[in-house]
Design a protein around this nucleic acid. Structure first.
Lengths: 332, 332
DNA sequence: TCAAAAGTGTTATCCTTACACCCATGT
DNA sequence: ACATGGGTGTAAGGATAACACTTTTGA
């Protein structure tokens, strides 16, 4: 017996920006031979960090040169390396790691580009990690061709999930989770359920992380889905995208991702890239207008080919004026 | 130098039920001479708890005899004892505690009553801890008579809050926080902002906890507001009520608080007690009906004096059928 | 002249809010 | 009979969703 196990708190930042008309995540190289992508991260040290958030900001700045603006806490995961690590780790006297995930929003930024490159960090399209989440060009074929068959298979084989239940009711519970998460027979696709979808895919052993965690021997069937990340970082990314998609609808966080001046189409495309689906042009504009989220600067941009567009900027006053509303995006 | 400081993870449960037409929180006696109320809590030990949530359930069962059903994680606070403890604690070699808060919903329950009493735990009206949150009998006088004057005072004196800013802009920022949190000049009261209100009140030094944390010498002016709790437990309670109020609107969590069969008025009163405000009878009923959240059992109850009411029960199928909707409560 | 994107007008539908009123029971 | 709560109908107003169409530039 060695007494209570040591605990370490890992602070992890899912830093998002818009690049090339897609949500991008700031990744650093990590793992043996830098084989994996990881989120910027580091342990919380209460002796030198006054709060966890300050600790996070410090780690990010050290690792990427980026000074964060908007930051919010997402979730705390206590089961990193959900199966595997327990045995190994205890023998090596390594601490148990509890991961606290954060969402940060920023601009892909210009000035930082050099420091970023130097540090080895870089922006990468989120949808490389979660390819089933981008519906802007219609329902991704991957879902019907690969994901759903293999999930159905997994559920039929008995699925997972604890709790006392008969094999039959367990099966049904899992099939229901699939129905709701992926919008089957009549249930609409809900773009906010990013984490639920990732968790199902993980549980079914369709991503590399499930192998690394010792949950399964190897990814069954064809390729593992999406690009793998270190530890539970992809789960944190999924949490971040879930939260961002939800929050966009009731708080004006989108402007954390916009340069000072922008056209309405650019704003719309930013919203679309995050939501992973198209939205209706007129309705989007009316929404932005009636909520008085932006004001015209008077200037126009001839950049994109076509009729020049009026430039707008965020009306920061809305934050003080009201329960700042965000884009309550409708269905289309 | 003693190397990196030790960290402990404290698991804390805000367990809520409805009792006597008010939201009740399960409290245990704690502190020197059991002077304080505390939430059921205990440290996370990864060697014996497979996940943090399991650890939480175990602590709660040990301390109160209650076996939890619905549980969800709220937030992780890294700055318990926000000022005070640092010096003291390091000298005594105590670990730094990071608090993970959970929300649990249950019935005040019948069968557990005996075990509960035996353990010293008991139910207590939430609004004893957060008396400014119950608007069912109109705006509480406390707000205008005590809270707002003292908050205004605090803001005028310079307030708190980090970040680089001039004294004037800091003042304005704090006045704005107050306006938004308490619904001043035109801003509507938002019942979900429980945590923001508590944080302001804490920052202004109007609760006992601020003294215990060494933020201020003593509560200035009159009485401290509400009943104090141990450590940051009242902050966790505020987070729990915020989350519950928000969630009620988009997930059918209210049924976790209802007995099997209930009248529509009972359901409405439960919603009202949690939201801390009255809702419109017809609209409430239509809401429940159009969302098909309940089904009649055929029976009636003559309990409350007046025409007998039809009894209903939760239609559990809605969870499987749709993105289970909750009570999207309107304004009145 | 044509592609590309900007920008406007209008309508049907649904949901929210707010009234006002009738019904059945116990005291 | 009357107080108490149960239960219903309906109409105004606003937000949403879905149409189709005109305008202005660059290539």
């Amino acid at each position: 017996m060695t007494g209570p196990e040591r605990i370490e708190i890992g602070l992890n930042a899912a830093i998002m920006a818009i690049a090339e008309n897609a949500p991008a995540i700031l990744r650093i190289p990590a793992g043996s031979g830098a084989a994996h992508d990881a989120l910027p991260f580091g342990p919380f040290d209460p002796a030198s960090h006054r709060t966890m958030e300050r600790g996070l900001r410090q780690w990010v700045e050290e690792q990427t040169g980026l000074r964060l603006g908007y930051v919010e806490q997402l979730y705390t995961f206590g089961d990193r390396g959900r199966h595997r690590e327990d045995g190994d780790r205890q023998q090596r006297q390594e601490p148990h790691v509890v991961s606290v995930g954060y969402l940060a929003l920023t601009l892909p930024g210009d000035e930082h580009a050099a420091r970023l490159r130097q540090s080895g960090a870089s922006w990468k399209n989120c949808y490389q990690f979660l390819p089933w989440e981008d519906w802007r060009d219609g329902r991704p074929g991957l879902i019907d061709e690969v994901i759903l068959p293999r999930l159905a298979d997994w559920a039929a084989r008995g699925g997972s999930r604890g709790g006392a239940a008969s094999a039959a009711s367990l099966r049904q519970a899992n099939e229901n989770r699939i129905r709701l998460a992926f919008g089957l027979d009549g249930v609409p696709w809900d773009e906010e359920r990013v984490l639920e979808r990732y968790e199902l895919i993980y549980s079914a052993g369709l991503v590399g992380e499930a192998v690394a965690d010792g949950r399964i021997g190897a990814v069954t069937g064809s390729q593992p889905l999406g690009v793998q990340m270190m530890h539970d970082h992809r789960r944190i990314l999924a949490t971040a995208l879930s939260r961002l998609r939800a929050k966009l609808k009731y708080r004006p966080v989108i402007f954390e991702l916009m340069v000072e001046e922008f056209t309405l189409l650019q704003l719309q495309q930013t919203a679309e890239s995050i939501m992973g689906r198209k939205v209706h042009k007129q309705n989007f504009r009316r929404l932005v207008e009636t909520n008085k989220l932006v004001e015209p600067t008077g200037k126009t941009s001839t950049a994109t080919g076509g009729r020049p567009a009026a430039l707008f900027k965020f009306r920061r006053e809305v934050i003080a004026e009201r329960q700042a509303p965000g884009l309550r995006l409708g269905r289309g």
